[in-house]
């Protein structure tokens, strides 16, 4: 059973109604008036057999007993009272919606009405996300979960699912143009490299936007007090993750820049790092032409015949034909 002091930390109670019942995958709860809960907070709900169901808050609604907007209009003296506060605050409550993440005893019955809800502590968040099952040596810090109550929890990925053999990819989604996805990818690679210093890992980065990734070996230099403060805060966050906020080792970073027509690198930026230039000659690239059409179905080998002809032509293996002469039959 819950200890008394834990009960006092509850932030609300589960609420299941006729119109909005709780289900195996979602539940709702009302929030204590002074409590602050935001989307993406992870909460723990009391459940049967002394277990907890963990849920990710996806939305928070504020409801009142006003039947409609007209009720609020009429309450303000038919729209004429704008300056004064209402004499009595209309009754309202914040209702949060949460998606079920897991249950500590694999019980997936819906959360019952009136069950207490808590903010999940770090160990409970790890339990909710299945992190506790990842062996320490395979844990790659993937970020810090910060909750509305100030609780923090490090989120870990399983190295075997990022680098193999179980799986080998990470999906990062977000808004375009803010460099957040790129930044996160850079952070994650740093986390992988720092937590596996002796592993045989090589990273290939393709820079596609200006000179964004041509300075990864350089330390971050704050240019103002504000930036300095931000840097110090970031440093603490990295420390919390068990990582160091430092540039990529200079001797391990190799920049390969494409050749331009002028013989210089075809790259943005004036202050380019130490680099090597690369280029593809047409003859050497000819055999890669097939890659361009690799996803196009070609059941009768028409396309491959054409590609073969082109490659032969580029590589100079094509036999010269007879010159055209008018009046001849070919």
């Amino acid at each position: 059973m819950m200890k008394n002091e834990q009960k006092h930390n509850s932030i609300g109670r589960a609420s299941a109604t006729e119109g909005e019942p709780n289900s195996a995958e979602r539940f709702r709860f009302w929030i204590k008036p002074e409590e602050l809960v935001n989307p993406f907070d992870i909460v723990a709900a009391e459940h049967d057999k002394d277990s907890f169901t963990y849920g990710l808050v996806t939305n928070v609604h504020y409801i009142t007993d006003a039947v409609g907007h007209l009720a609020n209009f009429i309450s303000n003296n038919f729209g004429e009272t704008l300056d004064e506060e209402p004499q009595t605050q209309r009754r309202g409550a914040n209702i949060a919606e949460a998606s079920v993440l897991s249950n500590s005893k694999d019980i997936y019955m819906p959360i019952r009405n009136e069950r207490r809800i808590y903010f999940a502590a770090e160990d409970k968040i790890h339990e909710a996300l299945g992190i506790e099952n990842i062996p320490d040596e395979r844990r790659v810090p993937a970020g810090l979960i910060k909750m509305s109550n100030g609780e923090q929890a490090v989120a870990y990925l399983d190295r075997d699912f990022v680098l193999g053999p179980e799986a080998g990819h990470v999906n990062i989604s977000g808004i375009s143009g803010l460099a957040t996805k790129t930044s996160y990818a850079m952070f994650l690679i740093q986390a992988i490299l720092q937590t596996n210093p002796n592993a045989d890992i090589a990273t290939i980065l393709l820079n596609v936007k200006y000179d964004d990734l041509l300075h990864i070996h350089e330390p971050r230099l704050p240019r103002s007090d504000k930036e300095k403060k931000e840097f110090q805060e970031d440093e603490k966050l990295w420390e919390r993750l068990g990582l160091k906020l430092e540039p990529w080792p200079k001797d391990c970073v190799h920049y390969l820049l494409p050749l331009s027509k002028t013989g210089k690198p075809n790259s943005f930026g004036e202050d380019l790092p130490l680099h090597q230039i690369y280029a593809y000659a047409l003859r050497e690239s000819a055999r890669k032409l097939v890659i361009l059409f690799s996803d196009i179905p070609d059941p009768s080998d028409t396309l491959s015949s054409v590609i073969g002809e082109i490659i032969s032509g580029i590589e100079g293996n094509e036999k010269p034909g007879k010159p055209y002469k008018p009046g001849m039959i070919y």
Partner: peptide
């Protein structure tokens, strides 16, 4: 008089 706000209109 101040009690007219809010009203249980509709309830």
């Amino acid at each position: 008089l101040a009690e007219k706000s809010v009203a249980p209109y509709g309830r």
